[in-house]
């Protein structure tokens, strides 16, 4: 069946089967491979995107359910001038990523958190990101990145 939606501000359309997952439509049909699949069971959050402004795990949404939706993926997170968003930049500044595989989902979830809670505490950050698994960082520097992106002072990396 035919579907249409906006992805990263651009109108897109495609032919999908009823069982096609949104993440597969994004990765395979639209060739936006920044969104990753880590578990197939909605547990890891690597596939987190924004759908109509809310973070969703795109491995658990059918492509047809996104008919008419406004979708944002990691490829659409940069500022208008092409520079990294404050959250993306904070992840680099705080070494909040290593292998980079969970990172797009982590950035999407963290960005959504700051929309809801502009200055989250450490506990609020950890609670919000509980559905995003990272195997590399132990979350320490991810927490700091989110604090930093929200304008809170964090200890400089490699000085603690």
């Amino acid at each position: 069946m035919k579907i249409e939606m906006h992805v990263n501000g651009r109108p897109v359309s495609g032919e999908v089967e009823g069982r096609t997952l949104l993440v597969d439509f994004i990765r395979h049909d639209l060739r936006l491979t920044g969104t990753h699949v880590g578990c197939d069971t909605t547990q890891c959050g690597a596939c987190t995107i924004h759908m109509d402004g809310a973070p969703v795990k795109s491995c658990s949404v059918l492509a047809v359910e996104a008919q008419g939706a406004q979708i944002t993926t990691i490829e659409g997170m940069a500022n208008a001038d092409g520079s990294m968003s404050a959250m993306q930049q904070a992840f680099q500044d705080c070494h909040g990523l290593q292998c980079g595989y969970c990172t797009p989902g982590m950035v999407m979830a963290a960005t959504a958190l700051l929309k809801e809670t502009p200055k989250p505490s450490e506990a609020e950050i950890r609670h919000y990101l509980e559905g995003n698994i990272c195997r590399c960082t132990g979350y320490h520097n991810i927490v700091k990145a989110v604090q930093s992106a929200s304008g809170q002072d964090v200890t400089p990396v490699a000085a603690e």
């Binding site: 990765r27 936006l32 491979t33 920044g34 969104t35 990753h36 699949v37 993926t73 990691i74 490829e75 997170m77 940069a78 990294m84 993306q88 992840f91 680099q92 990523l97 292998c99 980079g100 595989y101 990172t103 797009p104 950035v107």
Partner: peptide, 14 residues
Amino acid sequence: DIRFLSGTGRYTDD
């Protein structure tokens, strides 16, 4: 980090 944060990394499944 630039490519990992911008979604332009190239993993095998990509």
